[in-house]
Design a protein around this nucleic acid. Structure first.
Length: 218
DNA sequence: CCAGACGTTGTT
DNA sequence: GTCTGG
DNA sequence: CCAGACGTTGTT
DNA sequence: GTCTGG
């Protein structure tokens, strides 16, 4: 994980689910099939929370070009406190990335079967993320934190994104909070009952296919 | 000290 | 095989 | 993440 | 900018 998202929800949906203090009109086109390097919505700040847009794939401040070599769409939970590219963002630039769901490809000797994964309670997911800003490029970008799969997810994959529950959101988003030891304790696999999944058509593999058909159960 | 990397995924 | 584009 | 390209020249 | 490797 986690390399493909359904972030179809609107700015108004995000405002409803995350209590963002932001009534701006939609900045992005709803899309059921979003690959890395796309612009996506993120939620930042604490009282008030705000909606911002970010390139999915963190480009650090020292990168001199819009170069994909230094574009990281995932950040391992066990490395956020120590890795060069993540250490500073983990201390002061944490973000929630709202999503309707995400995709995993279950690889077997016979081939790959994509699955669509979403919350069982059908509320939006809130991924733990990190963001940074590159002044030279004028680019805000973000990464999704990953961890080991829980038992449920391990049916299809051995990694999963970190999903935060509403009671954790303020602590995660508080830019004043620099207790990295406590913060790292949030970066655990979700409880097994939180998520649900179903197989979907392989057409989701092509990110040009971005209509609702890609989430339809097979 | 300077030079060079800076990341994850999956697969073998 | 590996990189780029979506 | 997967899909698809992977290249240059000259001509319109 | 900051960390790791030499």
């Amino acid at each position: 994980m986690c390399g493909r998202l359904n972030q179809h929800l609107s700015a108004a949906d995000i405002k409803f689910a995350f209590g963002t203090d932001d009534a701006r009109i939609d900045l992005l086109t709803p899309n059921y099939n979003i690959p890395p390097s796309s612009q996506i919505y993120g939620v930042v700040g604490k009282g008030p929370r705000r909606i911002e847009t970010f390139r999915w794939g963190l480009v650090p401040p020292w990168a001199k070009e819009p170069d994909t070599r230094f574009s990281m769409h995932n950040a391992r939970a066990d490395g956020v406190a120590s890795k060069c590219s993540f250490k500073a963002p983990f201390r002061t630039q944490r973000i929630l990335i709202p999503a309707d769901g995400f995709y995993e490809w279950h690889t077997t000797p016979g081939g790959k079967q994509p699955f669509y994964i979403y919350r069982r309670d059908e509320t939006p997911l809130a991924f733990a993320g990190l963001w940074d800003f590159n002044e030279l490029l004028g680019l805000s970008s973000c990464a999704i934190v990953t961890t080991d799969a829980n038992e449920f997810m391990s049916l299809v994959h051995h990694r999963m994104p970190v999903v935060l529950e509403p009671e954790d959101w303020d602590i995660w988003l508080d830019p004043e909070n620099d207790d990295v030891v406590a913060l790292q304790n949030f970066l655990k696999p979700a409880a097994d009952r939180v998520l649900s999944m179903h197989a979907v058509h392989p057409m989701v593999g092509n990110p040009r296919n971005k209509s609702a058909e890609v989430v339809a159960p097979l």
